[in-house]
Simulated scan of single mutants.
Amino acid sequence: MSDPVTADPMLRAFLLDRLGLRGPLWAADMAARSAQDLGMIQIDSIRVTGLRNHEIAWAARTDAPVADFYRLLYDARGMLETHYPIFATRRDWLPWFLKDFGKTISADRLAEMRPLMRRLTRHIAEHGPVSPADFQSERVTGGFNTIKATTKALEYLFYLDKVQIAGRTTHFHRLFDLTERIAPELLRPVPEWRRKSGLFFVQSALSVLKLATPQQLAERTAHHIGSWRGGGLPMARLLVAKARERGLIVPIPFDGKEMHLALQSDIDAFASRATLEDDVVRLLPPLDNLLFSRRRLTELFGFTYKFEAYTPQHQRRFYFALPILYRDAIVGQIDIKKGGAIWQILDLDIIAPVPLDGLRGAIHRLGRIAGAGEVKSSNRLAAKWRRGLSGTISF
C-alpha cells in the first residue's frame, strides 16, 4: 500500500545508510562488525522462501555467506540470541536487557519447577548443550497453548541467567548451554549507576532505530525497558526527554522541523556518505530493522506494510511479502515460495519505477542464496515481469 511521501529525502537516505541498506554491500570482512552496529536483528523460523527473516536481512546488506552470520552469533558470540522476542542482540547490551526478567515468574510456579530445573542444569553441565527436542515430558501451560515441562524449565533457566542460547539444531531448535560457558559476564551484577539511569535503554533504542520521532523513540525505549520492569510509555517519554537534555540524543540537523532524533555518532558517520549513489535493488524481510517502526515506514516512505503470515488465507494477498527497496524508495513487494529447486514468484506489486534488470538481479541473487536453481512466475504477474524475471539462476 502506497501513501504520499512528504518527508525530506535526506531523512530516508540517512536512515537507510545507517541501517546498512544504502551504498555497496558490506565487504565480507566487515559484515560481522557492521551487523553488530545494528544492535539487534530479529530472528524468525518461517522459511517459506528457503531463507529465514534474519538470513534475508543479512543478504540484503552483504555478499558474505549466511553461514558467517551464524558464526558471529554462535561461534564468535559477538551477538547473542535472546529468547522472546527472539533477536540477535549485541552481547555488551545483554547485561542490561536480561537482568530482572526472572521477576516475571510467579514464586509458586518457580518452586514447582525447581527440581526439574536442577536436573536439567546437571544434565547440561555433564553432557553439554541441549535442545528442548532432546526430552520427553508432560505438557504444561505455555507457548501458544501448552508446552513441554522441560521446555518451560529451560526457559525459566534462561530468564534466571542460568543458561543461554548457544546455537541451533539442523531443525532450528534452540540449544541451551550454561551461561558460565557462553557469556560469564552475564552472571555479574549490573553496576548500580547504570541500573538507575535508564538512559541506556534510550540510547540502545535509538541505536536500533537510527532515526525516530520522540514518540517513536519512546515506544521503542519502552520495548527495551521491558514490561516486567514497569513504567511503560510514560516513563520512556521522560527518559527520552532526559536524554535530550543531556545531549545524548540530538535533533537531526537537516530536518527543518527538528522532529527526528539520532545519535551524534550516526550523524557524523553519515556526513561523508550523504552524496553516495546507490543503484542496488534489495529484497527485505518482513521483520527487517527498517520495519521495526511501521509508522515511521509509512511517514518516511509513503508505504504501509502488513505482515500477513498470520492472517487467514482468504483475507490476505501475500503470505511472506518482501518489500523491494530501490535507491531511497520502497518500490513494491514480492511474495516468493521455494519448492525444491524452484523459486516461485507468487505475486508482485510494483508501485514505483524500478529497473527490470536490477529487480531480476536481486531476485536471482537471493534465490541463489536460498539454494534455488530456477525462478518461475505465477500467471498473476503482468507479462513484462513474468518474462523478465523468470529463468535459470546462474551460479
Rank of each mutant, 00 (worst) to 15 (best):
G358L: 09
T62N: 04
R296C: 03
A372G: 00
K337D: 05
T150F: 00
E138Q: 12
L217T: 07
I46Q: 10
L187D: 06
F101V: 14
G39T: 08
D75Y: 01
H173P: 00
V202R: 05
W96F: 10
L389N: 07
S272C: 08
G247N: 08
E277L: 10
A107E: 14
A183M: 09
L80A: 05
V375N: 08
A236L: 08
L284M: 10
A218T: 09
H127A: 03
A243V: 08
T392P: 08
S207L: 11
R91I: 05
L283I: 08
D255W: 11
G302H: 04
K384C: 03
T151I: 04
P9F: 06
I342W: 02
D63I: 07
L19K: 00
V208H: 13
Y156E: 02
D255H: 12
N289L: 05
R294M: 10
E81F: 01
H224K: 12
F101K: 13
A321I: 05
S378Y: 07
Q203T: 15
A28K: 12
L16M: 08
Y319R: 10
D37P: 01
F318E: 06
Y310D: 14
P184W: 00
G339A: 14
I351M: 04
I86F: 06
V202S: 07
T392S: 12
G371E: 12
K306L: 14
W26R: 02
A236W: 03
A236M: 08
F97P: 00
R368P: 01
P95M: 04
R119M: 09
Y326I: 02
D266R: 01
E308P: 06
I330C: 03
V354K: 04
R71E: 11
L284I: 08
D255S: 09
Y156N: 02
L98Y: 01
Q333A: 10
F395E: 14
D288L: 05
T213V: 06
E219H: 12
N53A: 15
K103F: 06
R244T: 10
P4E: 05
P132F: 00
P253A: 11
T146C: 06
I351L: 12
R273E: 13
I124S: 01
L346P: 02
K162G: 01
S293D: 15
Y70H: 13
F176N: 02
K384V: 14
I342L: 09
Q215C: 02
G102I: 06
G391Q: 10
I351A: 11
R18F: 03
I249D: 07
P184F: 02
L80R: 09
R296K: 15
L73V: 14
R387P: 01
V375I: 15
G371W: 11
R47P: 00
I330L: 13
V190A: 10
S2V: 12
G23H: 00
F135P: 00
R22V: 09
